[in-house]
Design a protein around this nucleic acid. Sequence first.
DNA 1: GAGTCGTGGAA
DNA 2: TTTCCAAGACT
Length: 341
Amino acid sequence: MTDLSAELLAWYDVHARRLPWRVPPQERRAGILPDPYRVWLSEIMLQQTTVAAVIPYFAQFTEAWPTVADLAAAPDEEVMSAWAGLGYYARARNLLKCARAVAAGDGHFPDTEAGLMALPGIGPYTAAAVAAIAFDRQATVLDGNVERVMARLHAVEEPLPDSKEALRAHAALLTPAERPGDHAQAVMDLGATICSPRSPACGICPWRAPCRARAEGIAAELPRKRAKAAKPVRLGYIYLARARDGAVLVETRPEKGLLGGMLGLPGSDWSAAPEPAPPLAADWRQAGEVRHTFTHFHLRLAVLVAGVPEGGPGFRQVPARAFPTVMRKAYLAGLAALETA
DNA sequence: GAGTCGTGGAA
DNA sequence: TTTCCAAGACT
């Protein structure tokens, strides 16, 4: 173990964040490891998602489905509905595929990176994270935190993603044979709490002394990233048809693509010049506009509403929370317009 | 390798 | 208001 690793672990022993899916360092040092199911579930939820956003979803999932066998046996729609609002819905579809693959095997998660990588939704980062955190394998995690910490520690000025393999090599050299799971969590905690993207707290960093970016006064500028393309604006029409009993016309979106597999309201395509596409003949009236921004475009939806005497095929009573956020916004805007009519 | 794929909070 | 971006994976 290098001095750097030892200093980081000493810092982690004192400053580790308490998180619902985590076994604290004191217990890990006594030989207690977390449930691989909980580690895996948390890592999938945490992909490109903040800890604060994940916490309530993690609580709900582990309450509803305490084991991987429970999750594997759950109906698709229940799981997709429970995931609604968390984003990146391919994660939820792959979550179920993965749980079912594990349950169809011996019921246990693989304890190696290669074995984990073979499962749906588990890529290089998540495989390393589960191997290290759940099984204390000497695996090197490389997420956004680790990239940032390594870029600063070694003053790597080449922009991402070109520098990724260099950063991975730096991270691998620091990964200790002892306590690799705590090391992985420690680097990420350091990145999340001290070596933060905008204003790093270098003054209290355990790696303050060896950090080259800090010495050069460029810590806050690293890692550099190539400029991103501007987001275009897309337009669309979306329709809320509501029966007297409160049922609304909904659809399950196709498995692939944006909001795949999620519940939605019917509507037009989303483009520069969409054609209106009412799902049924009715007295549609304007109920305002909903704006929403996705990863690579801005969306403005014209919401149209109509009250219909009776429902029919596709009409269901649906709680707002069952929709992905953009659909939830449209649904609530439409409901408000119907109320004031 | 470059695009696709969500969301909400912070600055 | 706009931009950035958070424990990435998949195609």
